[in-house]
Simulated assay, not measured.
Amino acid sequence: MLGERIRGTAGAFAVGAIAAHLVSTVLQNTPDSYNQDLRKFTGGWPIPGWRFFAPNPGVQNVHLLVREVKSDETEPTPWRDVTPQVAHGWKQVVWNPASRGPKALFDAMQQLSVMSSNHAEFNWVTQSSPYRLVFSASRASAGDDARALQFLLMNVFPSAPPEQRMKPILTSEWIPLHPAVDSEAAAA
C-alpha cells in the first residue's frame, strides 16, 4: 500500500516536472517581451532557448570551393565544390549523427564570413580556429599528387537575380601541402 503510494507520487512528480519543463520551454521561446522574468522561477534549471530562424533568417548558402596545383603541373585545377552534402529525410529528424561534421564546417564558414564582413585583418583570420578547420576540410578533398591548394568560400543567394547570386567571401592564400618534400627539393 505504501509502496504503491510512493510510486504514484513519484510518477505524478515526474509527469509534473516534464509538464513544467515543456511549459517553461514554450514560454522561454516566445517573444522576449513575454519571458523576461522567467529565469527567477526556474531555480537554476536550464530551459532551452531556440530562435531557429528569427529575427535573421538565412537567405544564402555557403559553399566551399577548392583548387589545387598538381605536382607535375604549373596551372591550377578548376574550382570544384567540396561542400558536404547532408542527407535530408524523415529519419534525420529523430537520429542524425552524421550532421555534426557538416554543421561544424558550416559554423566555421559562417564565422569566417562574419570576420570578412567585419573587415578582419587577413593575418588574424588565417590564425583563427575556423580558418584551420576549413583548411583541414579542404585538405581532405585534395588529391595525393597536389602540392598546393587554395580554398574559396562563396555565398550563394538562390532567390537573387542570376547576376547577383554568388558573392565571394574569402579566398585563402596558396597553401603548400607537402612542406617537407618542397623544402628538400629547394635544398637540392
Rank of each mutant, 00 (worst) to 15 (best):
L152K: 11
P161N: 12
T77M: 14
F151W: 10
H21R: 01
V23H: 08
L149I: 14
N155F: 14
N123W: 05
N61G: 11
V26W: 15
Y34C: 05
A98K: 14
Q150K: 12
D72C: 06
S24R: 01
W95T: 12
Q127I: 03
F151A: 05
R139H: 11
N29D: 13
E73F: 12
K103Q: 12
L153D: 04
A19N: 03
N35H: 14
N35Q: 13
L112M: 08
D144E: 15
P97A: 15
G89H: 05
H21K: 00
F151E: 10
L112V: 01
K70N: 08
G58Y: 01
N35R: 09
N29K: 13
S138W: 00
R147D: 00
V66E: 01
A17N: 13
A146R: 00
Q111F: 02
S128N: 08
L22N: 11
V156K: 09
W90A: 12
R39Q: 13
N96G: 13
P76V: 02
V134F: 10
P84F: 05
I47K: 01
K70P: 00
V62N: 10
V156G: 00
I47N: 09
V134M: 08
T83Q: 10
V26E: 14
P84C: 05
R39K: 06
G16N: 12
I47Y: 06
L149G: 02
E68L: 04
G143F: 10
S117Y: 02
A17M: 12
N35A: 06
R100Y: 07
D107K: 07
T126Q: 12
V94G: 09
D37I: 07
Q111W: 05
L22Q: 12
V125R: 02
D37G: 06
S136R: 05
P158N: 07
A137K: 05
V156Y: 05
F52K: 02
